[in-house]
Nucleic acid binder design. Structure first.
Lengths: 254, 254
DNA sequence: GGCGATCGGTCGGCATTGTCGAACGGTGCT
DNA sequence: AGCACCGTTCGACAATGCCGACCGATCGCC
């Protein structure tokens, strides 16, 4: 692949860096993190500022993400087929299961949430759309890992960070779980991401069988599971049914 | 200002172009729109694809926005002070006024919605966060225009597009309205953006007095106005009160 | 069914372009 | 007051990305 443009790659790396830590970063800090000269980093940031991808705090001089990115992000959502096709089914899954529903896809070694339906009786305003979840500790992530061989290799480099006492941290254990996921066609998780929380997820497939995303529910562990680590069969059926419906919807042309 | 980096500016222009029309764009079309050679455009797109700012439809070869932008957009939201400071007041304004609330700021010749609270009794899922509204036909936009002299010049170049029968299209008429806005300290709009809809908005100020955004309500014209073009004074007071509260909140350090 | 137009993608030469490192002025700590 | 660090500017070098012509495949129209 000839000629990836360095300045653009560097600019993208800066934006990703600014997205981490969600705070204000200084020029020297940015330059050091990317291994660039201060002058070079400044030129890139100045350009990103002109196009409003980056803003600068006038008093401190530090840099943060810019407003134009918000519009680009929602424009992406509007054009995202996986999301638009699955919205209706996500609603019905939430209604039938009584739990909140998330639809995720892989991005950059994590699960990107592209849609989120709250529990019917929940008024919580924190919408997880655009948020990132760990691949190895969520049901959505396990599904994505199970059906993407290359992804697993990427993950193994990064440490499997322990989030709760029950998070899977041994690569061999994870691989065994993923084999079970492939065999069963769905994944579950109990208190591996957050204490007291559990989830169930199933793969969404493009025509041809390629897994492009996952749909799942999550909620209190005693409502998702009947015994430890054994999710309720009725909920599993609901999730798998919704996943198949979305996959079928992706096969139609309109 | 020495040395804005062209390749990055071009990449940003491409992303903006892809955000418009929210559909799939072809390489030749993109190159033509930006006045670039096909090879040049291809190199930039290939790089943007590597960093997942752009995706390519495998069957048709067309380009669309990529998933990484969604995460950047929500990361921007998390760090946005205007939004985080105003969320609580937006909720109370919605409760007191009984209407949906929006908070907007200027971006690229339009109003960028950074927060949106639905009407208490409304279950509609279309969240306008990240959406763009016209400056000259909304109450939010009039506020931003009234307090930003440079912005008005930018707008005058672009045609004042007529959205309804009552949209202000004559520049002189708009300027007279903006003078009234400055005198009153708030703006209103009745069926200038959508038939049957009206709105009221007031400015949000940084410490020092600079207007950085606007907060406003909108809803059915007969619920916002008591007579044609005369918004209910009680609602105006609620909006102005909320705007001042948010401005005061921006002045505190924590 | 074959042909033309158009598509996305590639390649190599030229010079424009971005990169680097050192120097500058201001600010906030110690 | 001193110092250290910040963000910013500048100029020279050469590496870098830009251009335009050239492929192969695909689609649609005769």
């Amino acid at each position: 692949m000839p000629g990836p443009i360095q300045s653009i790659e560097r600019a993208a790396a800066m934006l990703r860096l600014l997205a981490r830590g969600s705070g204000h970063h200084g020029l020297a800090e940015i330059a050091a993190a990317l291994g660039l000269a201060k002058g070079t980093a400044h030129g890139i940031l100045r350009t990103l500022q002109r196009v409003e991808f980056v803003e600068q705090d006038q008093s401190t001089g530090r840099y943060r993400l810019g407003a134009a990115l918000l519009h680009l992000g929602t424009s992406y959502l509007d054009a995202n087929e996986l999301r638009s096709r699955s919205i209706n089914w996500a609603d019905t899954l939430a209604a039938r299961s009584g739990h909140e529903v998330r639809i995720g896809m892989h991005l950059d070694g994590a699960v990107l949430v592209v849609h989120h339906v709250f529990r019917p009786d929940d008024t919580m305003q924190t919408l997880g759309i655009g948020g990132m979840l760990p691949l190895h500790a969520t049901a959505l992530g396990k599904v994505l890992l199970a059906y993407d061989a290359g992804l697993l290799a990427t993950i193994r480099r990064a440490e499997l960070t322990s989030l709760t006492r029950r998070t899977i941290v041994r690569p061999s254990a994870l691989e065994r779980v993923l084999a079970e996921v492939r065999a069963a066609g769905w994944a579950s998780e109990a208190e591996e991401y957050m204490p007291g929380e559990a989830g169930i997820a199933a793969p969404i497939r493009m025509p041809g069988g390629l897994v492009v995303g996952a749909i799942g529910i999550s909620g209190a562990v005693d409502r998702i599971c009947q015994t430890a680590n054994r999710p309720r069969q009725a909920l599993v059926d609901h999730v798998c049914h919704a996943a198949e419906a979305v996959s079928r919807s992706l096969a139609t042309d309109n």
